[in-house]
Design a protein around this nucleic acid. Structure first.
Lengths: 338, 338
DNA sequence: CTGTTAGCGCTTTCAC
DNA sequence: GTGAAAGCGCTAACAG
């Protein structure tokens, strides 16, 4: 029909009430209108094909119903699980989830994503394994908008984040491998140099080994960015006669990289080499052999993240989500070669 | 500092100019302000920590800088590739991309996602393999907002969509298999019953066979929803002594499902059975054997989709993106058993 | 080039 | 319960 926009004014006129009343009915301000009025208003709104103008509402209320999720275009693949958890929790709370991709350590794209959501004064910002550039972190903190990092660790208590206990991730995975009889255990495609996440995982790994009286040789550890190629590269470095009998890979994709490269080197997984990955996404079930993993609770991270945004106070709540070892087929007990 | 909001008024006062001028400078209305003024305005804006209020701008201009992407929480995994293409094209055009997940054929979530973006009067809506419920399609069409479906086919010329030519997808993939000497070729995990996409693929498949003088037996075709389990189920149906020597799977994930199930049935891929998948995502490279695929140009779909939104006229432009066969290791020439 | 003046569509006191 | 009125922060004529 018209070029643009049925407004509450139109409805008001048509229904013979004031715009204020229309607003109250449509916003469901319970107790502020009579049943008949409500009936009529809703009726004509539908007839006229009324569509609320969010911009107007947000302008006056200074508050949006949107929860922003900023996602690192990650080399791993767990983001969708976290997002599912976010959606499932946000939906009943009447929050719309909007997702923005921030590239991969691309400060410019990070900034644009941040500005977009800040200028909309979204209700909260969840950052999925985003390693924010310092200037962008400052930008984020310069606002009143609550935020929370997901699936990434920080040092100290200042930063709000929810993730797995990365030290435990390294510790328990390594422990499991030790329990299966392995003693020479590699750590592959974890960014031990760069991120707190990586450092913690390495620390946990070292502690588990230490408790077993083992000091890892430098060649056991091949840092990387959690990607498939990083897994391949690590395995390539271990070589066809690896000094390790098991390797713990930083992500499922990295674990698959390790396995495939091992195969190229003529090694059979798990007979010649056990491989364990960190994450435990669907990928583990569809590769051959199926990947034994230290599985994270990504869905729960999403849930916890939203709940934290929703919480009025900051009750220093649980900052870690559960982890568990899921045994599949890529790890076997170590037996000395004949 | 203040509870909320430095406005252009504040800047105006501070800088000794009018709000209008501030607006013009900040919006970069070239030629509508002097260099010195601009300098000072920008300066004080920064000092005051000014942050634009998008709601106000959109309210008055009736136009947003957002491009909405509604994604089906898909069982396949190509969405990120399309999104990359969208981002890469939208970014230079000064469009922010916001992504919403719409569940999987969940009409209610579809509606919420649609309403969210409609009420924001986004600049355009791209729907990634979303099979919209009729009432939601009506909702979408009741607006002035341009939209385009991606990676999904429709009948007739009315609906704006960009995807691969699904008939050709079926035809060329099957043709390739025929060229490799196969004659009994299965079609698995394609929703031949439900979607136009599936129907076209099946039609192409049948045509290729027909040209080779082959009529597919009913048992060759096992419809499904493109998922991994659908692939498994199809292979389970083919059985340990399949009537086919090659199968074309509806997606990479489905192809992997076929391969893994074949392995469980004691069949070696590709020796005992050739498998080809449709999509050609990264998954093809990381499974063993690597999956030969009919590869789609997902990135290009994203690019084309954005360009279509951007186009002022609707130049009935290219509606199909390229496809190609990428040979990997899961298909071999058929040789009769000894 | 810059200021003045009206609103964009909606919510929200404040009266009645 | 309902209406009148006053903006939210910004842009866009229209004058100058």
């Amino acid at each position: 029909m018209t070029m643009m926009g049925v407004t509450i004014k139109d409805i008001a006129k048509q229904a013979g009430v004031s715009p204020a009343t229309v607003s109250r009915v449509l916003a469901n301000k319970a107790g502020f209108f009579g049943a008949q009025t409500a009936q009529k208003v809703r009726q004509t709104a539908k007839e006229l094909g009324y569509r609320k103008n969010t911009a107007a509402t947000e302008l006056v209320t200074q508050r949006s119903h949107d929860l922003a999720v900023i996602v690192n275009t990650t080399k791993t693949n767990f983001a969708t699980q976290i997002i599912e958890g976010i959606q499932a929790t946000a939906f009943p709370a009447d929050l719309n989830v909007i997702i923005l991709y921030a590239g991969d350590g691309d400060a410019e794209r990070q900034r644009r994503a941040l500005e977009t959501v800040i200028e909309r004064s979204v209700r909260g910002i969840l950052l999925l394994s985003v390693d924010l550039a310092p200037e962008n972190l400052a930008l984020l903190q310069s606002t009143e908008i609550p935020y929370c990092f997901l699936s990434i660790s920080f040092e100290g208590p200042k930063m709000p984040f929810i993730t797995s206990d990365d030290w435990q991730v390294g510790y328990q995975a390594t422990k499991y491998l030790l329990e299966r009889g392995h003693r020479r255990i590699g750590l592959a495609a974890v960014d031990t140099q760069v991120s707190i996440t990586g450092q913690l995982r390495e620390a946990g790994y070292r502690q588990a080994l230490a408790e077993a009286g083992i000091t890892p040789r430098p060649t056991w550890i091949h840092p990387g960015d959690y990607s498939y190629p990083a897994g391949q590269a690590a395995m390539q470095a271990y070589g066809a006669h690896p000094d390790v009998t098991a390797v713990l890979a930083g992500s499922d994709l990295a674990g698959i990289g390790v396995m495939n490269q091992a195969r190229m080197l003529g090694l059979m997984v798990p007979v010649d080499l056990s491989v364990m990955s960190i994450d435990g996404t669907d990928l583990c079930d569809i590769v051959q052999p199926q990947l034994t993993s230290l599985t994270q609770s990504f869905y729960d991270m999403g849930v916890a993240g939203v709940n934290r945004m929703l919480a009025t106070e900051t009750p220093q709540q649980q900052r870690f989500t559960p982890i568990q070892v899921v045994a599949r087929d890529s790890v076997v007990d170590f037996v000395a070669r004949t």
